[in-house]
């Protein structure tokens, strides 16, 4: 038996069939030399997901490929970037397991469709943003409040390509978590500087992002 149960596979197949109107690629940067259970399981998971739709594929890359990492604007490894012709930076640093698995599924569906689940006034405000914003959402796999924050970050990126949205596995990237004094999640860090806490509705999340930019 794989990492995804037979029942969930069936459900996901249907979801991808109904939602993936274009090709979506999972670009996985993995650490080759330290082939941990963490990175092996992540690879296995992505292979299983990619097998569920003809419109979903997996591309493996090495963390050692600094040039490719740079061209993809990635700063941490391992990383899963969800890509398609749709513009947006939808990314996961570390593995989206536990409560975060739904974030990966939603990200795939979003990149494969034109879905944008944000209020109109938030979309309007996001489109007016001219500066580049990097949103990192620190999570733990046991946190039920975190997927909402991750989805906000990803959806913001789909609304305005100047915004980058990434999930960060706070336990795996322990040093980075310590640097940003993360001791509770979801903890959101803007442009690697200021941050805020919590799962907030999109309009409040945007207010906090703007506040953190000041």
């Amino acid at each position: 038996m794989g990492l995804i149960s037979e029942e969930d596979r069936k459900y996901l197949k249907e979801e991808f069939k109904n939602n993936l109107k274009r090709e979506v690629k999972l670009l996985y940067f993995q650490q080759e030399e330290s082939a941990s259970e963490y990175s092996e399981q992540t690879k296995e998971l992505l292979e299983e997901l990619a097998s569920l739709s003809n419109n979903l594929s997996l591309e493996l890359e090495s963390c050692d490929n600094a040039e490719k990492m740079k061209s993809e604007e990635l700063t941490l490894c391992p990383s899963i970037k969800v890509k398609s012709e749709r513009k947006g930076f939808v990314n996961f640093y570390g593995v989206p397991a536990g409560h975060e698995f739904i974030s990966l599924v939603e990200a795939i569906k979003d990149m494969g469709s034109d879905n944008l689940s944000l209020p109109d006034e938030v979309i309007k405000d996001l489109k007016e943003i001219k500066e580049r914003i990097d949103i990192k959402v620190f999570i733990t796999h046991g946190c039920p409040y975190c997927p909402g924050a991750v989805r906000n970050a990803h959806q913001f990126s789909l609304a305005n390509e100047k915004i980058k949205g990434s999930m960060v596995d706070a336990n795996y990237f322990g040093e980075l978590s310590m640097k940003h004094r993360v001791s509770s999640v979801p903890h959101i860090i803007i442009n690697d500087r200021n941050g805020f806490m919590g799962n907030l509705p999109p309009s409040l999340f945007l207010d906090k992002v703007k506040e953190a930019l000041k």
């Binding site: 733990t140 046991g142 946190c143 975190c146 978590s177 001791s183 509770s184």
Partner: peptide
């Protein structure tokens, strides 16, 4: 200070 052990215990 936390109100969610399943979220924050690993820290």
């Amino acid at each position: 200070i936390s109100f969610c052990a399943t979220c924050d215990a690993p820290f």
